[in-house]
Design a protein around this nucleic acid. Structure first.
Lengths: 187, 187
DNA sequence: TTCATTTTTTATCATTTGTTAAATTTTATT
DNA sequence: AATAAAATTTAACAAATGATAAAAAATGAA
């Protein structure tokens, strides 16, 4: 997925602003298993996924709880670090070999202060992520595990193909054993 | 709570920009029980709570599921309507008589296009709400009902005093009967 | 206050999900 | 292909939560 597509999908920038933004973006590759962002560190980079799939998880007394998956076209960011310059609570692990676009936050902050289009691009970015997060929260509150699994199967079947079930179960908020049981029941 | 305090807490604006923003804000009162925003409508107003408490809920086959409470200083908004000009999924009901500051979205949009400080104010607003929403999502995913209740009791005791337990239980994702049981156990 | 209504608690039983352990299947490596 | 390691499923029992109904407590109106 090309960087122009990713940036344009968030908010259509004038050419000049887009060029200024892209000047701060570089490409980088990491292998499966690499930890892209670390819990407990102030993480100041933003990544757009060109190719691959990642997960965000929190370490909670000895077991990892996955709360987000990112795939091609999505943005990898430690929201707490990004907005508050504080330690984030999540690790971000690559579940496949990944190609990423990297944007340094400090450069982006400078653009926010000088370019109104980029400021509005950043605003739209946060708004879009906000609605997606709210939808995940509501799905979790309103649906039982079976329905959430079926929802994932319907709208993001490739996640179930590409990600091992332990991570999917964690994301759904149930144990892997429960997910196996659910999968057996809906057949 | 004064409007200046609320606006400043989001992002400190230069006086000129703040004045421009405040020119579009008016005060209004509604009684307990009033529905401030309607599910299924495109809602184009934003409210800041001067006094009172509100809840956001979704109607899910005959029963209402509460997923957010707002109190003094917080912003009432239908995120989906606000960011996508589409119908929202939530009703917002006043749980007490409320005093509100009202901001019309169309006026705000114009300011976003012309005033970089206000664009960045809007960006910060979305970012702050995003982190809060993500924290709610994580709390819900990581903690059982008892721990979520204790968290609420610790960090927002006034919500438990001011809001009836049926709404609190719904917010916690359990039935009122379960919440009563939990309250009995932790005594 | 008194009465009716609403809210909260308690009790019982059903259902869902968790825990642990073992069996099976899949994947990766030699 | 053979082996080892990892992932997934199955099974049995435990714990948490849901559903329903009834009792108790709190609230609001006459």
């Amino acid at each position: 997925m090309e960087i122009d597509t990713i940036l344009d999908e968030i908010f259509k920038l004038p050419e000049e602003s887009k060029t200024a933004l892209k000047l701060n973006i570089s490409q980088i590759k990491y292998p499966k298993g690499h930890i892209l962002l670390n819990a407990g560190k102030v993480e100041s980079n933003i990544y757009f996924i060109k190719k691959g799939i990642v997960r965000a998880y929190v370490n909670q007394n000895d077991n990892e709880i996955t709360f987000w998956f990112g795939k091609e076209g999505q943005t990898v960011i430690s929201m707490k670090s990004y907005t508050q310059d504080e330690k984030g609570y999540e690790d971000i692990e690559l579940l496949e070999d990944c190609e990423l676009y990297e944007l340094k936050k400090e450069n982006l902050q400078k653009l926010f202060e000088t370019d109104i289009h980029i400021a509005n691009w950043g605003r739209k970015f946060a708004e879009i992520e906000l609605v997606k997060t709210e939808e995940r929260l509501i799905s979790r509150q309103f649906k039982n595990a079976t329905d959430r699994y079926l929802e994932l199967l319907t709208y993001h079947p490739e996640l179930i193909r590409r990600i091992q079930l332990g991570h999917i179960a964690s994301y759904l908020g149930i144990t892997q054993v429960s997910l196996s049981r659910i999968r057996a029941e809906i057949k």
